[in-house]
Structure formats: C-alpha cells, structure tokens
Amino acid sequence: MPQPPPPPGHPQGPQGWSPQPPHPNPPYPPGPQRPTGPYGPPRYTPPTWQPRKKKSGAGAIVGGLLGVMALALVVLFVGAALLKKSGHESSTTPIALPTFTYSPPPHDEPTSPPTTRPTSRPTSRPTSQPTSRPTSGPTSEPVRQVNKSLKANSLYLAGTLPTTRCPAGNANIYNHAQFKALILKTGKCMGNAWGPALDRVGITWQAPGYMIAARKGRGACGDYPSPGSNVPYYCPRNSTIYASTSAMTKEYGSLGNWHGLIISMMAHEYGHHIQNLTGISDQWWSHYLATSSKNTRLALTRRHELQATCFGGMFMRSVAASYPISAAQRNSLLWAYNHLGDPPGGPRDHGSTASNYGWFRQGYMRQKAYQCNTWAVGASSVS
C-alpha cells in the first residue's frame, strides 16, 4: 500500500527527495560534550553467483522451459522494483565504508555546562563616569548566529559546492608514493570545495590532517587501519584522516584500476570532518549518550554515516568535470555504492546497500547541502 505523502516541506529520503531549505535562523540547543574517537566507511564484497547443476534428457527440456518462465518473471519483478525505486535492502553481499569510533573526551574539556549565575555581585556604583559620546560606532556587520543542531544546522543553507578543478591524473593505486600524493592532492580539492560553502553560512573552515601509511600505523584514535578493517577513518580527537594505501587497495582493488571509488571513500571521511566542524557530530554523540537503547543508537549512527556518504557524493559531483568522471565512471560509482553497506550478521551501523546507494546518489545528483539532511527523514530512508 502506498504511504501517505509527508507534511509540506518535509524531506522524503533519497528516493524521490524534494525537501525544502531550512529557516535561516532557527533556535538551537547548547552544544553537548564533545566526541573524540575515529569513524570510517561500509564494506564491499563482489556479488557471488551460484553454479547451475547439469540436467539431461526430457528433464533438461522441461527444466529449460521452466527456466525461461522463471527468467521472465525475474525480469518483470526487477523492472517493477526499479520503476518503483523502492528503498528495500539489497540482497547483494555489501562492501565496507569507513566508520567513526569514539574514545573518551580529554580531561581538559568541561564535563558540565557553566553556572548561570556570577560568582560575585557587582559593585553598587560604577568606578568611573561614562563618556558623553561612544568611542566607536557599531560594527559594520552583525555577528551571524550559527545553528549547530542536527535538523536545522546552518550548513543546510550552504547550497551547492562550487565547481572545483581537481585533475587526478593517472596515479597508480598500487604505488604508495603515487597513491599518497593523490589522496593529499584531492584532500586539498575537498577544502577548496567545502571551505567557501561553510564560509557562506558563517562556519569557520579548517583543514583536517592526514596520516597516510604504506601498511599500518598508530594515531590519536588507535591503530590504522583498525583491527579487522582495511578502510580509512576520521579521528575527531585531532581532526585527522588516517589511511593505509595497501589496505585500501586490498579492500577496493578488485573493482579495477580507476581510483574514483577510493577517493569517494576519502570524501566520505572528509564529510565526517564537515560534521565535526558544524557541530553535527557533537549533537549526534549527545543523542547517542542520552539513550541506552541499542537499536536507537544504531539508528542514530546510520544517519550520521549516511550523511557523510551523501557529502562524499556532493564532492565527487563538484570535481566531475576536471577529475574527470565520465558517464560510465559515474555509473561505476553508483554501482559500487549499491554494493556498499552493513554485512549480513554484522552491526547495523552504516546502513543497507539500498540506503548507501540512495544517499550517495542523492549527494551526487541533487548536490545541495540540505538534500543531505539525514536527520529530517523517516526511518525507512536510513535503514
């Protein structure tokens, strides 16, 4: 049965989105305790195929006819599913995107809000008489209020990322020096794209750090890559993206020599950096700590991760002309994200393959920051 339409101005999710931009100055709650640990992307395994058993004689003829009929039904069902663009989870075995893992906050950060009353009372009389005229006039521009909430963050007013020149060249992902240079070069492009967007809405942009090892290393959020993982991750404790070139080629090298997918993974990590700068990660972590429900925590984390995936799609679109990303390579990216997601039996913290595909495509095709507001949609869009 079709679902009733959402209220006016409410986003519908990656399938057929038509959200409205947020109000420019909505209220927002005070900032929470700051999170400090790593996060990264979902996991990939190429699709597997079951071999067909041999048949002979009349059984083979009957089997062939049944096979043709079954194939026709499959085609009809698949066609109908594609036309409906349903958000149901893909049956393919998914890949892995990087994640964000937290460690306790530093001791030098406050664990409670400041008191609301002063510690001492003011004197009854001023120490000097005020001058008859002010020494300076008002500032030429009012201070812009920055909204750091999840659903109405100032970031959503930033619009599209500017078209950014970022030719990737022919770097060999199996050569550590070339691969590292490519990551650092495209990282600067990400700053060139996101910096002006944040500046437009009064959010201070700062570049993240990078630690790129040939094999493995140890950083502020622990080992990289994380034990049992080959994907990069972002550490909010020191605003640094960690990656191993050999681990990433092991994880994604089977998809071919083109490095666009891996750079989109780094763009996902940069998306976590944007979440950190805008207060979205702080608010997510505050909501995470406020509940003891495992399912609620997983749902919050999926929204956090899928938003980073959407931001990654926005960046890849901003450099498509110069990177370059041809129509065929764009389709390859979309195909790959349709195989990215939470593995069967694993934690449901990154979203299904359908959700990862939907949100990457949302960022790539719709482009505007408010189209990546995963916090304002129903649970089915972030499954």
Rank of each mutant, 00 (worst) to 15 (best):
L157K: 01
M69H: 03
P134E: 02
P46N: 04
G64K: 11
P347Q: 06
S246H: 03
N192T: 12
A327S: 15
N172Y: 01
Q3T: 12
P324H: 14
Y174S: 15
P225W: 06
S91G: 13
D282S: 13
G378R: 11
R133L: 12
S86C: 00
P11R: 01
L334T: 01
K53Q: 14
P142H: 06
I263K: 00
K55A: 14
R366P: 00
C189D: 04
G191W: 10
P19F: 04
N147R: 02
T301D: 10
P225T: 03
E269V: 00
P113D: 10
P113T: 05
R34Q: 13
N175W: 00
D199V: 01
Y39G: 12
G358N: 05
W285G: 03
P47Y: 09
G256Q: 09
A152S: 14
G228S: 11
K216G: 07
P232D: 02
P38Y: 00
W205D: 05
D342T: 09
Y270R: 05
P324E: 11
P344G: 07
Y224I: 05
C372P: 02
N25Q: 14
Y224H: 06
L73H: 09
R330K: 15
P122T: 05
M248V: 02
G363N: 03
Y357H: 15
P118F: 08
R297C: 01
Q50L: 12
G363M: 03
G16M: 09
Q33W: 01
A267S: 12
H350F: 04
H268F: 02
L65N: 02
R303H: 03
H107Q: 15
G31T: 11
Q371W: 14
N257H: 14
R361H: 14
S226H: 03
M365E: 15
S326M: 04
R125I: 05
G13V: 09
P110H: 06
Q129K: 13
V62Y: 04
T353P: 07
G228R: 07
Q33N: 10
R302V: 05
C310W: 02
